[in-house]
Structures are given as structure tokens and as C-alpha cells.
Design a protein around this nucleic acid. Structure first.
Lengths: 358, 358
DNA sequence: TATCAATTTGGTATCGTTACCAAAAACGGT
DNA sequence: ACCGTTTTTGGTAACGATACCAAATTGATA
């Protein structure tokens, strides 16, 4: 490949010293306008760009940030990433993306890596900061080795984590309000006259799951409603998991089925509705469904899904802002506060029957 | 942040010269086993990793590759990316991901960038190679400025493009067989006795769209069936576009509706089915639907979608393999040949009624 | 033991920037 | 015209690796 221009060549061609060219490159004020213009012209003409390696040697920065997330095919993470990249780019940072989970994808995962290995890799890549979106960090008992690896990472570059705060880890955490949304769904169901409400989906042992189930139980207890434990079925986050969870629910409590079910996300809801259909049940007729974390297809499914808009874009944006400000040495913690919004459509019955597509 | 170890410090601590440490780092054979072990131990102890900047200065490589794609939230690109990253990582390459399309996401896209701008950015990042997955490259008339920018990129680093070959561009192209799949859908529909078949979705002026529509028309003509132009409605690639395309189809040819429709992908199929439902029509009863590029939820939708599995994983893998071999100076072109597989489920009627979930 | 070849080591220029300091030029005021 | 101050420039030492060549060590053979 063609050899790159260097600052010396630019200097020579413009008849100045490298120092002056460097000053132009870095917008230093102390360059005479005349020289600046001439140099800039030469830079443009040869479309020279400074070597990030040489710069890195001096500044120890790469202008890259690392993003670690479990699964980019999950719309939740994809939309988060999108906001992150957008904002990062606006601040001259590019994003190195590491997708840690391959299992679901039937790909022969020839590299047997756990998240700790990714931490190491990312460190070797000399990124200026790391953003961790979900993953193992959300486990209820995070392994010590994981925390250790995380702290080691944190000692070298700023680390921002979108997830639940854990003890013994001094990274910056951005927490979502997981409970508020579930509570508002419960209230909505109660208002529609439902007495027996269930909850499906979510991996057990994961904080997101248990936080939502806690909120679910708690909000029912406050209203003096009972919770039937058989109506709570964990599994995972995808359509197939919604399917299996609903089948299990139907099988184990055939004598007293819930009349409404909360799904941990839209994919799970879709799987659950499919399961109901396969068992000859109608949604919302027999069981109403509402879910968290709405995604793009929610408004086109049959029935259209009542779902929570968690404003993930906002979350992603806050996370990078926090990271970039930490990279720039700021200690300030950005406060984040956004309320999820319940989008009422058909799957919860009653009020949503008309649909909401615009 | 803590200051990083350098090779000199390691050398000093192990009582050897930097050269020897460097040799250990690069697995050079000419180091005595005893010294090698001792040095390795010190390296591990301080968990030293060499500076990518310093290395880059000497080798001019970053061990990073750049991936440019329009929309990571689109399951097609997400699964492609996953394979790409997996294989890249296995070869010590990390992936810088650039998502060029923001429009669909209602985000205030404060950075007004077109793909050419991304080329420039990626070049400045000193990646060792670039992989372009779809996007503007698939336009029927690619702007000259785009080709120019592309060639400029290509002159500096190897560029592999997953997309249709274009004249005047000497990058490496990996082409999908777009026609075969559509043809097999047509044959399936004909076998089921359908006479009037339509086609919906896909952005007009994009090669993927026109290639598939061409294949659609051609395979019908070969069988001496007519094509009703009103039954071909382009729009875009998402659920909302399937919805609007189907509405338009229903509106413009109410007198003679097709009995079967091919959707350009599963999201479009979902939108179309929703539109039918809103108009009181049943799928597959009134209009059967089959689509290309199956995605994860295909088997859980109502009805389950008959769809084409294009084996994208394989495509993604070939693309990185090609890129990495090009980075390593190989001229060889990998030949790629995989046949799409039609997964028959409910949405096409008849044969698929039983569903296919395992 | 002396000689030569093969193996293992060390020294140092180099890569392309920026930071820092010193030198030169430009400017203002007497 | 001279001096002091400010602005603008240039020279060069870092930064942390690798590559290359020369030197030292080892081992084998006569």
C-alpha cells in the first residue's frame, strides 16, 4: 500500500518547520494567518492526516473507546449502541465494539472467551475508555475474578457501566430505573380489572430480572393483591424463551390461569403470544400481555404490543457523556432521570383495542 | 491513570536487553529457553502489554479493522457483524464499527455525515483494512464522489465490499446470490397453485431490490405467467415499509389482488401481514406471504413466516477471511457459494400449516 | 587448544508526532 | 535608531516498540 505522508514532508513542502505544521494541526493560536493558510492548503492538497500512532506515543490517547455488550442482535443493545456511537463520533471518538455472547447464534464459537478475556483484549487495544452495557455485570453474584478484572481495567482507563451498582467496584455506574415501569404496567392491569397477573421471561439470577420481579410483587402487595408464584416464570430474553415460559405457565397452572401477564421484553411477549395461540388461547382475550423495553416491531405484531418505552437513546447518550467527561478528567457524576412511558396498544386488551399506529 | 509498563522496565527487571524482551514478545526462536521463561514470568507478573502505538510506528499496523454498515439494528447486518467480529477476533483483529444510517431512529442526528465522511474518518483511524457491508454501495447509480472516495480508501488499505460489483472500483467484492432465493419462492408459490403473485418492499434504486424484482419477474416469465406491475410495490426494509407497501397494493389493485406476495425481508412481511389484518384480510388465507432473509422472530410471528435462510453467517465469515488474507498480502480471491434455503412455515399456506418449530 | 560455525545476545537508529525551550522577527514607545 | 516586549518560529528530546547489525557466547571439530 501507498506510503503515508509525514509531517516532515508537509513542513518541507510548505517551507516551515515541523513545529509550525504541528501547531496548525492542533489549532494553536500562535501561527501567523498567512502561514497557517498556506500550510493548511498543502495539507489539504496531499490530504495528509497525522499518524495516530505517533500521536498516541506522545499523548497516550487513541481517541477510541471500547464498548462491551452481550448481544448486538438484541434490539435493546443495538439502539443503545447507536446512540453511543453517534455521540462518541461527535466528540471524535470511534467505537471498538465487542460482542461477548455468541452462544445463541448456533455459530461454532471457536473462541471460548468470557468477559474477563474481553477486558484484557480491550486493554491491549489502548482505548481511552470503556463502556460496559449489561452482561455479566448484571449477575446477582458477580464472580470475584470478574470484579478483579474490572478493577484492573478501571485502574488504567475510565470505565462506565450501564447496569446495577455492585460493591467493591469503583467504576462509574449509570442505573436504569427498572421498577417504575413494571409498577405502571401493574397499575394499568389492575385498572382494567385484572386480579391474577403473571410475569414471564428474564434470566434468573440477573439483577434486571429480579428487580423487575420484585417491583412486580411489591406493587401487587401494596394493593393487597396476591401473587401466585406459579405465575412467575423466568427463562431468558428472546422469543423462544417467551414461548417456553408461557408453555410452562400454562402447564403448571392450568387450574387458575392468570388473566394478564407482564413480559420482560417485547421479544418474550411475541414468543408468549405465539405459545398461547398454539394452545388455542387468544391474546388479549384469554390473557392480556404487556411488556417492557419496546422495540421497532411492537406496533406491527399481532396483536400490537402494549409496551414500555424506556427511552434507551437517552440512557446511551448519558453513558457516553459520562465516559467522555471522565476521560477528560472530570469527576462530576451526571445525574440521570427519565421516566419510562407506557405505550398502550392491543395486547393488553380494552383501552388499546383501537391500535396506535399513526 | 496509572502509567503503563514499558519494555525497558521489563528488560531491566529481568536483567536482559530490550531486544531480548522484544524477541520473547514476538516468539522469536532465538532466545534461550531459560531466559525466555524468566522474562515471560516478569511480563506476566507485571502484566505488561506492549504499546500498540509504539508497535504501530514501526509496523504501520493497528490490528484493527473498520466495519461500515448502514444499520446495526437491522437483524441482517447484526448477524453479519457478529460473524465478522468473531472471526476477526480469532485473528487478533478488533473491529471499529461505523453505523452510517441514523435517520430511521428519530434521533436528532446532529452530525450530518454521509458515507464518504466515514471513509475519511476510518482512514484517520489507521485501520488495517475496511469491510463495507451494504449501504450506498448498493445504489444503482453510485455517485462519482462516492467511488472516488472509495478508491482513495482502497489505495491505502485493503477494502472488501459485501455488495454488488461496480465498475471503476477496484475493491474486492463478495457478491450474494440474490436471485436464486427469490426464484425458489416463486416456484414454491406456483407449486401451491398461485397464479397472481406480488412483490413488496425494498428501496427503489437499490441493486438488492432490483435484482430480486428482476429475478421475480424473470422466473415468472420463464413459466409463462404474467406479472401485474401494480403488484410490485417498493418502499424500504422495515416493518412500517411493509405496512405501507401492502396498503398501497391493496388500494391500487382491489379488483384483482394477488393471492401470494413475496416480501423483501421478514420485517417487511410482518408489516404487510399487519396491514392485511387491519383491512380484514387473512394471511395465508387471502394472501400468502413468503420473505427473504429470515430473522430470529420468524418462527414466532403470527402466522409463522415462510422465509429464506440466506446463511449470512457464512457470508460474513467469507468477507473477513477475504479481508484478512488481503491484509496479509494475498491476491487470492476466495470463491463463495452457498445456496439459500427456503424454510417453509405457515405464512405461505398449505404445506407449512403444521409449523416448524422444534 | 585453536579455529570456525551456529546460536544467543546487546546496542542503537528508526518510526512520526508533540512538548518544551531557545532564537528570531515584529512591534511599540521613546 | 534603540531597547524591551510580544508574537511567531525552529530545533530537538522525548514517547516505546522493532529491525538490523555487531558482539559475545556456545559448541563442535580438528
Amino acid at each position: 500500500m501507498k506510503t503515508k505522508m509525514t509531517i516532515q514532508e508537509i513542513a518541507q513542502k510548505s517551507g516551515v518547520s515541523v513545529s509550525t505544521v504541528s501547531r496548525v494541526l492542533n489549532n494553536s493560536p500562535s501561527v501567523s494567518p498567512k502561514k497557517r493558510e498556506k500550510i493548511q492548503q498543502i495539507i489539504d492538497e496531499y490530504n495528509y492526516t497525522p499518524s495516530v500512532f505517533a500521536r498516541g506515543m506522545v499523548n497516550h490517547t487513541s481517541k477510541n473507546i471500547g464498548i462491551i455488550l452481550p448481544d448486538i442482535t438484541n434490539p435493546y443493545f443495538a439502539s443503545l449502541f447507536l446512540e453511543v456511537q453517534n455521540f462518541a463520533l461527535k466528540n471524535q471518538y470511534a467505537t471498538l465494539l465487542f460482542n461477548t455472547m455468541f452462544v445463541r447464534h448456533q455459530l461454532q464459537n471457536e473462541l471460548h472467551l468470557n468477559e474477563e478475556d474481553y477486558f484484557k483484549m480491550i486493554l491491549e487495544k489502548q482505548v481511552d475508555g470503556v463502556l460496559i452495557l449489561g452482561g455479566s455485570i448484571d449477575k446477582e453474584d458477580v464472580p470475584n475474578s470478574f470484579i478483579h478484572a474490572l478493577n484492573q481495567l478501571q485502574r488504567r482507563v475510565p470505565v462506565v457501566i450501564v447496569g446495577s451498582k455492585i460493591d467493591g467496584c469503583d467504576c462509574l455506574f449509570i442505573e436504569r430505573n427498572l421498577k417504575q415501569g413494571v409498577t405502571s404496567i401493574v397499575h394499568h392491569f389492575i385498572a382494567l380489572g385484572h386480579e391474577r397477573i403473571g410475569f414471564i421471561g428474564g434470566e434468573p439470577g440477573i439483577r434486571i430480572t429480579s428487580a423487575r420481579i420484585d417491583a412486580f410483587k411489591h406493587s401487587l402487595q401494596v394493593l393487597n393483591k396476591q401473587v401466585d408464584e406459579r405465575h412467575i416464570v423466568t427463562s431468558d430474553y428472546y422469543a423462544q424463551d417467551g414461548y417456553s415460559a408461557m408453555i410452562q405457565l400454562l402447564d403448571t397452572s392450568a387450574d387458575s390461569l392468570p388473566t394478564a401477564v407482564i413480559a420482560i421484553n417485547d421479544m418474550v411477549a411475541i414468543g408468549a403470544i405465539r405459545a398461547m395461540r398454539d394452545r388455542g388461547l387468544d391474546c388479549p382475550g384469554d390473557i392480556a400481555i404487556a411488556s417492557c423495553d419496546q422495540f421497532l416491531q411492537s406496533d406491527y405484531s399481532i396483536p400490537r404490543l402494549t409496551s414500555l418505552d424506556q427511552h434507551n437513546e437517552y440512557l446511551g447518550r448519558m453513558a457516553v457523556m459520562q465516559l467522555i467527561s471522565a476521560i477528560n478528567g472530570s469527576e462530576e457524576m451526571l445525574s440521570i432521570n427519565h421516566s419510562p412511558e407506557l405505550i398502550i396498544r392491543e395486547s393488553c386488551g380494552a383501552a388499546g383495542d383501537a391500535g396506535s399506529r399513526t
